[in-house]
């Protein structure tokens, strides 16, 4: 088998495992985003207690490794198994990695996204807010028609980075949660292939190729949506969004 066939063969083998990574990302991004909006509003709240809780949550989840968070929540869920999940009869759902993985990712990504959204919230132009207030808009109206549209536009490039990072973080899930039967993600499968023929360069490179390609697709899709968001701006301004991510989480 020539090296080219070997690469093609690996690409075919790793196609199904890549779906698990995509599933983890797809399952956690939308809910994580909603959570992040809630956390942002909490952090921006005037009440010291509410904003304190949100800040502490964001700090804790941004300040500790996802690897530890995965282990910690998995072991917490395990220790609750006999007393809570078993009697309720939902233990096989709650402890399943396809449920637990996205759940922990949601906790993690909502903290990172909330930090991004909060940064955007603080940079909403003051003049527009004052204009909205002088029009006599209520607080909900203000948020929906002034704060939110500004926020999402300011936050989108950074949020794109966060989503790519989240996608990369899905590689960690099956290092901590149990692998059930053939439900293997890219890293598992690449490791398994490596143990068969010890060809580290081939298998890991193809896995890396998958990660690169999917990251690129995320950038493309999010870039298109950014273009849509910025459709009122001059074309020259939109061009700034290109495939040169900061990758700083």
């Amino acid at each position: 088998m020539s090296w080219f066939d070997a690469i093609i063969n690996d690409i075919i083998i790793l196609a199904k495992p890549s779906l698990f990574n995509i599933y983890f990302a797809l399952a956690s991004i939308p809910i994580g985003f909603l959570f992040a909006i809630g956390l942002t509003l909490m952090k921006a709240s005037k009440s010291k207690i509410i904003s304190g809780i949100a800040s502490a949550y964001i700090y804790a989840f941004r300040g500790s490794p996802l690897f530890i968070q995965l282990f910690m929540f998995y072991s917490i869920m395990l220790s609750l198994n006999l007393s809570v999940w078993k009697p309720m009869g939902i233990d096989h759902i709650v402890l399943h990695p396809l449920f637990l993985g996205p759940m922990i990712l949601i906790l993690n990504t909502s903290a990172y996204s909330a930090q991004i959204l909060y940064g955007a919230y603080q940079n909403v132009p003051k003049g527009e807010l004052e204009a909205a207030r002088s029009f006599g808009m209520g607080r909900v109206r203000q948020f929906l028609s002034v704060i939110w549209p500004n926020m999402i536009r300011l936050a989108w490039p950074a949020y794109t980075n966060e989503v790519v990072f989240l996608f990369h973080a899905t590689a960690l899930i099956y290092f901590t949660l149990p692998v059930i039967n053939e439900q293997k993600d890219l890293m598992n499968k690449a490791g398994e292939l490596f143990e068969k023929d010890y060809n580290v360069f081939l298998h890991f490179s193809v896995a890396a190729l998958y990660y690169l390609a999917i990251s690129f697709v995320i950038f493309l899709a999010f870039g298109l949506f950014y273009k849509y968001l910025m459709r009122h701006e001059a074309a020259a301004k939109i061009k700034k969004f290109k495939f040169s991510p900061k990758y700083i989480r």
């Binding site: 960690l172 290092f175 990660y211 690169l212």
Partner: peptide, 10 residues
């Protein structure tokens, strides 16, 4: 562009 854990093992 690839996860750190992949390179970390590779």
């Amino acid at each position: 562009g690839v996860p750190d854990v992949l390179f970390f093992l590779f």
